[in-house]
Amino acid sequence: MAGSVGLHRVIEPPGVLPQAAWRLDASPEIGPDEVRVRVQRLNLDAASYRQLAEKHAGDGARIRAEVLDIVGTRGKMHNPVTGSGGMLIGVVEQVGPESSLPVKPGDRVATLVSLTLTPLRITDGLRGWDGLSEQAPADGTAILFGRSIVGVLPDDLPPELALAVYDVCGAPALVDRIVRKYRDPTVLVLGGAGKSGSLSLAAAKRAGARTKAVVVSAAERDALRAAAVADEIAIADARDPVAVADRAGTADVTVVCVDVPGCEHGAILATAPGGTVIFFSMATSFPAAALGAEGLAADVTMLVGNGYVPGHAEFAVDLLRTTPAVRALFEARIAGD
């Protein structure tokens, strides 16, 4: 078990799993059940990138320097402020003889586990990245464990697009699972115009739900309206609980996909008694969510979206393929970056 979960890669503190570790051994030599990937592109998660961009006032060079410092210090991309990381794409270089992962050398893959637990070395100084987008061209090595999750990139999607979808593929799959437990539900997505938000709306609509979204601007409203996955769209600051509840009304299932802190209470207030709140944002404060629900006497079930549902990658890619307007949202975001 220790090998399959990467315990032997933990440098400090001893005895914890790789995600909880402060520092990992990112050396490229692999163990018998490990896989080494030649890194081609990183995708920083939205909450982490936003925190870095705000800290450095959008200075790309300083953002790049801090990412290099984090990886060099910790042996993984694990933002010490947000606690989040992202994921990557690359080419499989070597597969250990005891590896159970369904890949072979030469496969172009996306890691479907967080960079916060993936041993990572950057060898090119991120010189191909200007620091001004979540996706960073890179060269280096990453290590996958026996219990890691990995997907071979689909041939019909550009790698940048596939990476963007895989980064959030857990969200729509879990939304689909939860929505199908209700009869004729209403689903509200906070941050509906983003990557995870738009796919969550598409999943809810496919599952037969009435869909509502909260976005922060008229531009996001117009873009989401064109995607035709939200029956209602409200403009509000998701950090303002009263505004969210007043403008969006209530829902049976509320999904939080906003990459800023402070959205917990609005989501709870907008969820009907007996409903479910799904938190997919890494900016979520779970103490604030738990205590807020208690303080509001809210009879709601609150779920942490952990990023993994069996078949989640295939489910998300199929949504993208069958919902062209959502694909257009993703492509516009990548082009804007």
Results as ranks from 00 to 15, higher is better:
Ala2Ser: 15
Ser4Pro: 06
Val10Arg: 06
Ile11Gly: 05
Glu12Val: 02
Glu12Tyr: 02
Pro14Arg: 12
Gly15Trp: 07
Gln19Glu: 10
Ala20Gln: 14
Trp22Phe: 15
Leu24Cys: 09
Pro28Phe: 07
Glu29Phe: 00
Pro32Ile: 03
Val35Asn: 04
Arg36Asn: 11
Arg41Ser: 10
Leu42Glu: 02
Leu42His: 04
Tyr49Asn: 04
Leu52Ala: 13
Lys55Ser: 01
His56Ala: 09
Ile63Thr: 08
Lys76Leu: 11
Lys76Val: 12
Asn79Arg: 00
Thr82Ser: 12
Gly90Leu: 11
Gly90Gln: 02
Val91Gly: 01
Val92Lys: 06
Gln94Met: 09
Gln94Asn: 10
Val95Pro: 02
Ser99Gly: 09
Ser100Asp: 13
Ser100Gly: 15
Leu101Val: 08
Asp107Ser: 11
Val109Phe: 06
Ala110Tyr: 00
Val113Ala: 01
Leu117Met: 11
Pro119Asp: 03
Asp124Val: 09
Asp124Gly: 03
Gly125Thr: 06
Gly125Pro: 12
Arg127Trp: 08
Ser133Arg: 12
Ala136Tyr: 08
Asp139Pro: 00
Ile143His: 12
Gly146Asp: 11
Val152His: 05
Pro154Met: 08
Asp155His: 14
Ala171Val: 13
Arg177Gly: 04
Arg177Ala: 13
Ile178Met: 09
Arg183Ile: 15
Asp184Thr: 01
Pro185Ala: 06
Pro185Val: 13
Thr186Tyr: 03
Thr186Met: 04
Val187Tyr: 10
Gly192Phe: 03
Ala193Val: 09
Ser198His: 07
Leu201Ala: 06
Ala203Asp: 04
Lys205Gln: 15
Ala209Phe: 06
Lys212Phe: 05
Val215Lys: 05
Val215Tyr: 08
Arg221Ile: 02
Asp222Tyr: 06
Asp231Val: 02
Asp231Tyr: 08
Ala236Gln: 13
Ala238Thr: 00
Pro241Asn: 02
Ala245Glu: 01
Ala245His: 07
Asp246Gln: 15
Asp246Leu: 14
Arg247Glu: 01
Ala251Ser: 13
Asp252Gln: 05
Val253His: 11
Val260Arg: 10
Cys263Met: 03
His265Lys: 11
Gly266Arg: 04
Ile268His: 00
Pro273Asn: 03
Gly275His: 05
Thr276Ser: 10
Val277Leu: 01
Phe279Glu: 12
Thr284Gly: 04
Ser285Lys: 09
Pro287Tyr: 11
Ala288His: 11
Ala288Gly: 07
Ala290Gly: 12
Gly292Gln: 01
Ala293Asp: 03
Asp299Leu: 07
Tyr308Lys: 10
Pro310Lys: 06
Gly311Asn: 08
Phe315Ile: 02
Ala316Pro: 07
Ala325Asn: 09
Val326Arg: 02
Ile334Leu: 14
Asp337Ile: 00
